[in-house]
Amino acid sequence: MLGYLLRRIGLAGLMLFGLVCLTFVISNVAPSDPAALAAGPDAGRSQIEQARRDYGLDKPLPEQFLRYLTDLAHGDFGRSIATGRSVGTDLARYFPATLELVILAMALGVLLGVPLGVLSALRKDGPADHATRIFAVSGIALPPFWFGLLLQLAFATWLGLLPTSGRLSVFTEPPPPITGLLLVDSLLTGNFGLFREALSHIILPAIVLSLPCLASILRVNRSEMVEALRMDYVTAARAHGVTPWRIVMVHALKNAMLPTLAIIGLRWGWMMSSTVLVETVFDWPGIGLYAVSSAIAGDFKPVMGVTLIVGLNFMIANLIVDLLYGVLDPRLRRA
């Protein structure tokens, strides 16, 4: 087990290195002059050259790469060219917002996906089944950015029930971070007003982000359930008068747990990446919005930083799921 773990971690490290190389190559294929961006619009040649030296852009590419690697090893993501700010500091500021959104969306996906999947299986081929199946596919087919705009339009603009965007109202000063997750921090400090405010801001983006994940979980639970209901022992149990409800709770859900877990692992990294669209729509101050606004401006250091962070999340999530699989299902433990 330990050997397996070490091998996996080693592999993840190797992949992270690959990712660094990849992002570095991408950020240098652009035919752009980062120094001009750093120096600002009205800068003359002397300021541009100054900026080039300041950012080490005058060095040959291999040297820049080595420097980036050493900096990364020290936990330093470099400086954004457009703003001159430390990417690491910015990432630390924006990551909790994204994390909070992803966790909530994941929770919504599981809490709604599992029961809906069970329902669908119990009513197999009935109207409820067709409806949930189409709903499930819709979750994957709905363009999140468009659906987000629709929700914004309906709940914020027309009904006036929820705020349009952001994480908190402008007038609310966020509390000093404990975990950085506002919902958690507000509960920890017993500030229920803040909790409600944070919840009202996060709910729409979380719904939009949760849909694809919800759909996957729903489908897996449905198919596992359908399968389980076909099993001999279930039929036998039924014949012995065990209520369907009990069968669902005891047998089928147990079967569905592992695949659900696998989906959580897969979708975790995926959500971190697709949160880009949701954050753009809801002006959510997370790493996705940070990546997009930097990419549009042609500022690649932040994009590289976000890619690495999301990649890291991918790998860690997969690792954890693999390990949990091993623990939960000894048959799958690998040599």
């Binding site: 592999l11 190797l14 992949m15 690959g18 990712l19 990849l22 992002t23 991408i26 950020s27 294929v29 652009a30 990294g269 995926w270 971190m272 990446s273 697709s274 880009v276 669209l277 996705g288 990546a291 997009v292 990419a295 549009i296 042609g298 690649f300 994009v303 590289m304 976000v306 890619t307 999301v310 990649g311 991918f314 790998m315 997969n318």
Partner: peptide, 24 residues
Amino acid sequence: MRFTDLFLSVPGLVLAIALVAALG
């Protein structure tokens, strides 16, 4: 397969955004 895994572990949309931003 390792090379494939590398790409699979990359956040697709973020990487695509970076690529298009770089290529134009």
